[in-house]
Design a protein around this nucleic acid. Structure first.
Lengths: 243, 243
DNA sequence: CGCAACCGCGTACAACGTACCCAGTGGAGG
DNA sequence: CCTCCACTGGGTACGTTGTACGCGGTTGCG
């Protein structure tokens, strides 16, 4: 009960004031964990593996991080920091949201394992908070805060949906050690079977028609994003023609 | 390699044809696992615990389910089945999408642990497929399939964002055995500190203004949903005024 | 100069998913 | 009818995980 306020990782100071100089750091540990997760999937980033990566003993990590769950929170927030939102809001909301969406997509493609670490409870690390500040600022002048939240949720839904699909079809095979051929044998045959059965016309349409081969992934993403931003524009009173 | 096609859980038959009558079933096991997850969180649904719930030995489950990961896929798809989409598309797309959103939200509130089991690779179980068929059918007459996908992703983003926030503030304390008071001490004090610091005006605005106490959760959700459907309406050519 | 507070970390343990093996069983072939 | 064997449920055991605990050494403050 004495350090009840330290239950939250973001309130707990990295190190106590007294004592010898520490050999490692939270940032260093987080970095090593992300490196492993990028290369072998997030489940490969075990405490022992991370410790080995930085040349430490497994239990040494617990001098810096209370638990593995908390370390994953640190990793996720570190990734949020890769989304560059400097200079937002710039005044051009469409440019701001486009840049944000592009940055987010690029980050997810660099670290596809982030798709599997969402927690039911939100975390609010410093990078996440900065993102909220900048992003909510973009439309703050146009709509009340609750509508702003709804619009950002819509935007996030589009970006996340697109990138998830992209990750799974481009092949995030690292997860659970699946090789590309194994994944094709597994998912490809199943999808073929569904399509051939004729019972799932919409699913078939998605699989066969939604991917336009003459457009690059980037272009397809940008095109869909344009439609989403049109939707948002329609919801901004200052930009709506009639009414 | 002989049963390479059985790598996918949805292609693997539940039981071989020959032999004695089985004592349990996939459905029964899935149901028991969901019951435990509802009561104690998804991490409490271990193989031994599930087996005990139905009065079986731990290893017996593996006669029905290849792995725990696959069992979680079964659980997730079973939950998709709780979203009632019979009669869709009805012709009234706004009513259809409203019902879908309500059903989804209700399901998530019944089983909040679903927020933590998203996989990077999609699963496409029978209930999920049915959902895709009905839901994509709603706007199929109005927009091409890729725009339809984008619009549904936006809708999903709004619903998921709302419900996630609702879950965490209404208190999904079961996860990792947090009690309500522990969660308040952890998150409440942290949020208070962020607000009092004055460094996060947007975050503060969200926390203090976005929740309107005179409206019920249902009403707030419905209100925001209305705005999202307005956005979608603006994207449907047949419903657009100008152009 | 002492000494308490810190360090890194080796050992140990409980809990997990699950491979392997066993004795029992009931439906198909004779 | 009997025989057989593919199947059953499940006990035991193994490797891996997160992490509690305690050790001997180090360091900066009084």
């Amino acid at each position: 009960m004495a350090d009840a306020e330290y239950v939250n990782i973001w309130m707990r100071p990295e190190r106590p004031a007294r004592g010898p100089k520490p050999a490692y750091s939270r940032a260093q540990i987080t970095e090593a964990a992300i490196r492993i997760a990028d290369a072998e999937g997030v489940e490969a980033a075990t405490m022992r593996r991370i410790a080995a990566e930085i040349g430490a003993g497994a239990m040494s990590l617990y001098r810096y991080v209370p638990s593995r769950d908390n370390l994953v929170e640190l990793m996720a927030d570190r990734l949020m920091g890769e989304i560059d939102v400097t200079g937002m809001p710039s005044g051009d909301w469409r440019a701001d949201l486009t840049r944000y969406a592009d940055e987010w997509r690029a980050m997810w493609l660099r670290h596809p394992w982030i798709a599997g670490v969402q927690r039911s409870l939100p975390s609010f690390g410093p990078n996440q908070l900065l993102l909220i500040e900048r992003l909510m600022g973009v439309l703050d002048a146009f709509v009340p805060i609750d509508e702003n939240l709804g619009l950002m949720a819509m935007l996030n839904g589009y970006v996340e949906g697109s990138v998830r699909e992209e990750i799974s079809s481009a092949g995030e095979f690292r997860r659970s050690g699946l090789s590309e051929s194994e994944w094709m044998a597994r998912s490809g045959a199943y999808i073929d079977q569904l399509v051939k059965s004729g019972d799932y016309p919409m699913f078939t349409k998605i699989v066969t028609e939604a991917r336009q081969p003459h457009l690059s992934r980037d272009e397809q993403f940008r095109h869909g994003l344009g439609r989403v931003l049109d939707c948002i524009a329609a919801a901004l009173p200052a930009h709506r023609e009639g009414l």
